[in-house]
């Protein structure tokens, strides 16, 4: 009995330790991880991280090894000359050389992050609490407006102009690169060169108010041809609703004055306060990465946006008849 107890008390922390280690390791991969890079800029950061970590581990081992050596293995007084030499080499020369090497390495990796984009320019504006996204290429005369999703072509460097409306935000897509602040009244920039097509998570990384934690976004990296086709499709006006329910939804949309805040190009809604909804149904997520893009989620959102995103400026439409609400959700989901 006593033995069991003793055993239990030693294995429990060990299990916790292994469990914790495994938990930490699972955080290394995935769609929103600095350590699972999918772009050139994130690769640079991951390489820097691993080298710095390796350096820190080596130094830690060397320092503790030295402590162990002088306190446990060779317990004796040093001669003044030996002590002097240890201080000069261990305390001055060695750290200076190590810091110079690590600093030079880090700095030599940095210029690539400052390269200019080559063709596609995105303008990302931080709103409360969503992202306004505009795409410009050399061929497009007017920018293609979207929201809460950033799509980029793989294999080329895109320029991102960053602005903010109201509060300071920060755009961070860990799998693609570092983060940059979006500051009201100023224009900042970054550039990203994604390599691997896929879907990645992004997040506002600067506390910006009530729904800061719910200000996420999806970054979709596409092969260049697919991206071009997608952009062309986004530039087109919305397709008019085809089913009876969707047509009823459009009528509700217009009757309730949704167009005062939202734009649906081609269907007469021109508001610019909220996100452009022209191709809403084609996005991966709803409400800036918070909900999946589905009819049920749209209905929940329309009924009580405040319950999903505190402080949101969109009013609730829970007072609508259930059938109207469902029709509105069907109409919006159909805006592919």
């Amino acid at each position: 009995m006593q033995d069991e107890d003793a055993q239990g008390s030693t294995t429990a922390p060990r299990r916790l330790c292994w469990g914790g280690g495994a938990l930490l390791l699972t955080a290394c991969s995935g769609p929103q991880s600095v350590l699972d890079p999918a772009g050139r800029d994130a690769e640079v950061l991951a390489v820097l991280f691993w080298w710095m970590l390796g350096g820190a581990v080596l130094l830690w081992l060397a320092m503790n090894g030295l402590f162990f050596y002088v306190t446990r293995m060779k317990e004796r007084a040093f001669s003044p000359q030996a002590a002097d030499r240890l201080i000069v080499f261990g305390g001055v020369v060695f750290p200076t050389v190590v810091l110079a090497v690590l600093l030079s390495f880090a700095l030599s990796e940095m210029p690539r992050q400052r390269d200019l984009g080559e063709g596609l320019t995105l303008r990302v504006t931080g709103e409360s609490w969503w992202w306004r996204v505009e795409y410009r290429t050399e061929d497009t005369e007017t920018p293609v407006i979207s929201a809460n999703e950033i799509r980029l072509p793989a294999g080329s460097r895109s320029e991102l102009e960053l602005a903010a409306n109201g509060y300071i935000h920060s755009l961070w897509i860990p799998a693609l690169g570092g983060k940059t602040d979006l500051i009201p009244g100023r224009e900042t920039r970054m550039s990203l060169e994604p390599v691997t097509p896929g879907e990645y998570g992004g997040q506002c990384a600067e506390f910006c108010g009530e729904s800061h934690a719910k200000m996420a976004l999806r970054a979709v990296v596409l092969p260049p041809e697919e991206f071009a086709a997608w952009l062309e499709q986004q530039a087109a006006p919305a397709t008019p609703p085809e089913t009876e329910t969707a047509r009823r939804g459009q009528a509700v949309f217009l009757r309730e004055g949704c167009g005062a805040c939202h734009a649906i190009r081609g269907l007469g809604a021109r508001g610019t306060i909220g996100p452009d909804l022209t191709h809403l149904g084609g996005r991966r997520t709803l409400a800036a990465g918070v909900l999946p893009m589905s009819r049920a989620a749209l209905e929940d959102w329309l009924r009580a946006p405040e319950a999903i995103k505190p402080g949101v400026r969109m009013p609730a439409y829970g007072h609508l008849a259930a059938a109207d609400l469902a029709a509105l959700a069907t109409f919006l989901e159909g805006l592919k």
Partner: peptide
């Protein structure tokens, strides 16, 4: 003086590697 020389070199190092204002 030695520490200052190291400090001055480290402060100047970014300008050596990074060739743009961005």
């Amino acid at each position: 003086s030695m520490v200052s020389a190291i400090g001055v070199s480290f402060v100047a190092a970014p300008a050596f590697y990074i060739g743009s204002c961005l």
